[in-house]
Design a protein around this nucleic acid. Structure first.
Lengths: 301, 301
DNA sequence: TTTCGGGTATAGGGAATAGCTATAGCAGCT
DNA sequence: AGCTGCTATAGCTATTCCCTATACCCGAAA
């Protein structure tokens, strides 16, 4: 039993005539005759009574034809769903992003993405790099935004931008009037860090090797937001990426001081499985990043 | 898009692995790979993402697979309906019968048919021969029971039985004590006839050529039942077929007198379109007739 | 590094199928 | 008898489908 055969019997029932039904199906009359004979043979039932000057479905034939129409309608829906799904920019995209990027990049990015792909809503997972990597591998996410390096088998990356780190100190701090700070100066117990697992914590430790890394300490923040508040309240100093220091995330209770050249920075990238079926959705994200205009990002795309 | 391809994508979505899905479908792995690639190409959408160690449906793929299951289920119903309809003795049969047979034959025939084909209910049309012929030709009836001759193009007949005619007279009539009546004696104005169109009327006229045939006369009956009542009431005499004189259609107000040999009779037959798709249903009717045991019918089957 | 193993894609060939044209067969009409 | 309208059959070709063999890819093990 094939969909073609079902189309044939429906046409024959409608036209009541092999020749016209064949024409309706754009095949020759013998083709339709043979196909219907074969189907009747396969089903073991005579679906049509051939008389002189008429062809009419038998009792079973009538029921079979009716059901065949349902089957054909369902099959047609399959095609429709596929056609509608053809546009890779149509449909939800599952995006993962690290905690230290999400709140600062996404508001602008989503705005920019709406221009590029108006019908591609994002499901957003904010998490730490390691978890995002797992979810990307397990096909729970389509794309992630992380800091390089990010090497996973079968995963492609594309750099988006670099962002410099800057030092933040509370108002009244000794460094407040300084033009620049050397990375080595950021040291000791006074430095507030993110909790273990956050990649930005490791980036700061890498950039400022003099910073001690107390594992159980009140000087560990859950997020950049809490770090900023802790600094503002006078608990210590810290290092944040540029994007987290843009308006409106500044505060008149902290001062922002750049690093001395070459300032430490990190490279932010997009990552997706090599086999991901919607490469154009990835392209759209890149386009959206291109559309950003902020001093905080030194775009690479 | 074929039903086979739909089965393939459903299997692949279930198994998450080309090789196992192929095994599940009893085909080789390349066959399934190629078929799915072809379907994706036809639909213009990638339905599955092939990764290392996993194959998972894309967003569109998931929806397509789900719809494919519906389509396959509907197609399977087609097969089920056909299989259920395989039994030709299962399902309604549309039976036509002439007025002068129906009331006398059908009660017994239906009883007998229940033995032969318990799941074949009858839709019964009682009408005159000409109308039954039309309805048979137009596929509004499957089988008719009529008196021969009954020649229609594309229609087959099979004789069922002969039934003799007999004379009926009211009690006290001059013929009441006679052993037999010659057909030529049935003559004149005294004879009651069915209205024009009833084949039995013509058969009586054929058998008893001396009967005058008044077209507009109170001596015309709508049915054998009314003829019988009119005779009983003393309006005249008439001729009826044997089957209409069986118990319980007799009356103590009329006397039944046979014709002299050779008694006139008529031959009752079954007729159906040559192409009728349920020949076994016709056979079952013949069997049911064979099962009758009544002196009124001289069976021919 | 090499090899192995699990998995998918590709190549090449053979069988089955689906389509075509031409024509036979059949019944009703002229 | 011949014509017409219709369906079935025959014979052929192109396509499709499916198979085996093998290439390819990658991660894991040696």
């Amino acid at each position: 039993m094939t969909l073609t055969e079902l189309r044939y019997i429906v046409a024959l029932a409608q036209e009541g005539n092999f020749s016209r039904a064949a024409e309706h199906c754009s095949v020759s009359q013998p083709t339709l005759s043979v196909a219907i004979a074969r189907l009747e043979d396969e089903l073991g039932v005579q679906l049509f009574e051939r008389g002189k000057g008429f062809v009419s479905p038998s009792d079973v034939g009538r029921r079979v034809v009716e059901q065949a129409q349902h089957a054909l309608a369902e099959a047609e829906k399959v095609r429709q769903i596929a056609l509608r799904g053809r546009d890779q920019l149509d449909g939800t995209l599952r995006l993962g992003v690290i905690h230290t990027i999400g709140p600062y990049l996404l508001p602008q990015l989503i705005h920019s993405l709406k221009e590029v792909a108006p019908h591609m809503p994002l499901v957003i997972e904010e998490n730490m790099t390691a978890n995002l990597a797992d979810m990307l591998r397990d096909n729970e996410l389509d794309v992630v935004i992380i800091a390089l390096p990010f090497d996973l088998p079968g995963v492609l990356t594309r750099s988006l931008y670099d962002e410099s780190f800057k030092v933040i100190v509370p108002k009244g701090h000794a460094w407040e009037k300084r033009d620049a700070i050397a990375p080595e100066e950021v040291a000791g117990d006074e430095v507030l860090l993110l909790k273990a697992g956050n990649c930005f914590r490791d980036q700061v430790l890498g950039a400022c090797p003099q910073v001690s890394s107390p594992e159980t300490d009140i000087r560990l923040g859950h997020s950049i937001g809490t770090i900023r508040c802790m600094v503002a309240s006078g608990l210590g100093v810290s290092v944040l990426p540029d994007s987290a220091l843009q308006h409106p995330y500044t505060s008149d209770m902290i001062s922002i001081i750049p690093f001395a050249d070459p300032a430490p920075s990190r490279r932010i990238a997009l990552a997706w499985r090599a086999g991901f079926v919607r490469p154009k959705a990835v392209e759209a994200l890149l386009d959206a990043v291109r559309g950003l205009n902020s001093a905080a990002y030194r775009l690479l795309v």
